[in-house]
Nucleic acid binder design. Structure first.
Lengths: 131, 131
DNA sequence: GTACATGCAAAAGCTTTGCAAGGAC
DNA sequence: GTCCTTGCAAAGCTTTTGCATGTAC
């Protein structure tokens, strides 16, 4: 049953369109994944889903805004996303652009500074570069 | 004396050209800064230095490769750089794209996982999002 | 029916590249 | 003299947008 995918989209406030469902199936049917629009485009072509590139970009932008996926902060000119929404961290090999998840509880900060006046901490990301 | 700037370039193995010196002066004469090519372009225009945009991009790419500056990992489509080379971390306000340095010693990890087999840890970056 | 989404193509934004001319070493 | 760098324009790549058509609600 892929109802959980439809629910995800509906609950986000986005309209339930067939293109969004197909893209969401690519994203959420397998294990958590790290990806760019390019990956989704290739998958869409492989499965002959006939979704235009603009729609892929728009869907990913909308999914990100509605927190169905999260953007990953890298030194890339492309937008990278993560289907894993839980607070977590990454190993990163910049040569291959490979990302590996690190569970939240596998890292903890011993100390960290207070945010500037008037601000609060929303979250923190640890990126461990490996080579 | 700006000799330290020329030394930086010479020691990196890059040829000492007037354009690179002028760009390096913008980068290294003041306090540490976070910037994109756009910032440098504006500064070059303000100072009427007549350096072409391609040369600015090429210089920043080369400086980054030679470790005169470091790229910052953000969710931006632009390349952000940092003149501060010391291992350190950042507060980040994604609404305004403001970055604030955090000294290395102001953060320490209580625990962190071993890297995957065959890899070693090069460095880690902590990005604390504030709002 | 209305507001939102899609598809396509065009445009936009950032960065890189090809090539001829110039400059560093 | 050789090889690297520059400047300019053109191309490249990723992403966004305008607009007419289509679809969810």
């Amino acid at each position: 049953m892929r109802n959980f995918i439809k629910k995800k989209i509906e609950n986000s406030g986005l309209r339930l369109t067939s293109q969004r469902v197909k893209i969401a199936e690519i994203l959420f049917e397998g294990p958590p994944m790290h990806f760019t629009a390019e990956h989704i485009k290739l998958e869409v072509e492989k499965k002959k889903l006939n979704i235009s590139l603009a729609t892929i970009y728009n869907a990913l932008r909308d999914f990100n805004e509605k927190n169905l996926i999260h953007q990953i902060k890298l030194e890339s000119t492309k937008n990278w996303y993560d289907t894993c929404l839980e607070d977590h961290h990454h190993f990163y090999n910049s040569k291959t652009q490979q990302l590996i998840d690190i569970k939240k509880n596998d890292i903890s900060l011993k100390k960290y500074p207070s945010p500037p006046n008037g601000f609060k901490i929303k979250k923190y990301d640890v990126l461990i570069e490996i080579e």
